[in-house]
Simulated assay, not measured.
Amino acid sequence: MEIKILRSGNGEYQTYNVELEGATLLSLLNHIKTKIDPTLTYSHGCRSGVCGSCAVRVGGREVLMCEYKPSGGECIEPIRNARVIRDLVVEGSMVEKCNRAAHASGEKMDGSALSAGEMERITVQSDCILCASCYSACPVYAVNPDFLGPFALTRVWRYVNDPREREVSAKMAAVQANGIWDCTLCGECVPVCPQGIAPKQDIMMLRTKASMMGYQDPHAAAAFGGGLDFGGPMF
């Protein structure tokens, strides 16, 4: 089996031939590392699709190396929108940075118990494994590096939708700039999530809640000369 891996040293793909049938990409890279090329650098942890540390791009799409089984001929490269440390390893502080800016955590939550229905509303968003695949797939970063990103926004929805959270207003205020209105709703983040989370839908829900709280899409307002007043004629 032939696979090509983008090497950070020269910015070119290096071809490897490995005779392992039915193996995961992680197993193939472990074989290359131990038997062929000890300089190859990549990251992994749990080996069972839980930790998210082995996310890469294969053929232009984000996957977890421990779950993906290549068929041969694929091009492997690091995830996008993150600084490459070496080969397939990237610097991951952007997730923490975006989460902090978006207030994407439980800040002031009471100790009341959740009903089964209330728990179900936030279960999916709570399953994120921090693989950053959605960040890598997001095209908004090409024009706005300060964008809060899919995961941070879907995590905000998780807490806004939690009846125990007492800082809903602060969280909604935090995602107005470089946040929910900057998303293009392209949906590229949805199919790459290994946990089945759909940030696009969560961002749409945040937009609806923001509108109910009196916020407006600044881009739409600018299109109407700086304000949205439909009560009179426009010239």
Rank of each mutant, 00 (worst) to 15 (best):
T39M: 02
K108L: 12
H31D: 09
P70A: 12
I85T: 11
V140P: 04
V56M: 06
Y13P: 06
G92A: 13
K209R: 15
L6P: 05
G59V: 07
M65T: 10
P163Y: 04
H103C: 13
G187I: 05
C138N: 02
K4W: 03
G72I: 09
N10D: 15
G117D: 14
V58T: 11
S112T: 14
P70E: 06
L64R: 07
T34Q: 14
W157V: 01
G196N: 09
L29S: 02
V190G: 03
D87Y: 00
T208K: 15
F151R: 03
M172T: 03
S27P: 00
N144P: 06
K97W: 08
W157I: 04
D146V: 00
N10P: 10
P139R: 08
E19D: 15
C186Y: 01
T184Q: 10
G52I: 05
S115E: 06
A173Q: 15
G214D: 09
V18S: 04
M213E: 11
R158F: 03
A82G: 00
C183L: 02
A223T: 11
M213Q: 07
D37K: 05
I203Y: 00
G231V: 10
M65G: 06
E91G: 01
R100D: 10
V58I: 14
R86Y: 02
N144F: 03
V190E: 12
E96K: 13
P70K: 01
G179M: 07
E2W: 02
S133F: 01
E12D: 11
D202I: 01
C186H: 01
V160P: 04
P145M: 10
E165M: 08
Y13W: 07
A223I: 05
S105M: 10
K69E: 12
R7W: 11
P191F: 04
I3T: 04
L153V: 06
R7G: 08
C131L: 04
K69I: 14
M1N: 04
P145E: 14
A223Q: 14
D162C: 09
T208Y: 11
I79S: 04
V190L: 02
N99R: 15
D37A: 03
P150F: 07
L40V: 13
S93N: 11
A220N: 10
L40I: 13
I180C: 05
V160S: 03
H44M: 02
G45T: 12
G226F: 07
G60R: 08
F235T: 08
G111I: 08
A132F: 00
F151V: 14
C66V: 08
V140S: 01
M213K: 07
R7A: 08
H219M: 04
P78H: 00
W157T: 03
A137M: 13
N30E: 14
E91I: 06
L148V: 03
P150Q: 09
G59N: 15
A101E: 11
V124E: 10
T154Q: 12
S71V: 14
M212R: 15
L6R: 09
V63M: 02
E167Y: 02
L6F: 04
A220K: 12
C51D: 08
A82M: 15
M204Q: 15
L114K: 07
R80N: 12
G22Q: 08
A174G: 10
A222Q: 11
M213N: 06
E165P: 01
L206V: 15
M205E: 14
R7C: 13
L130I: 05
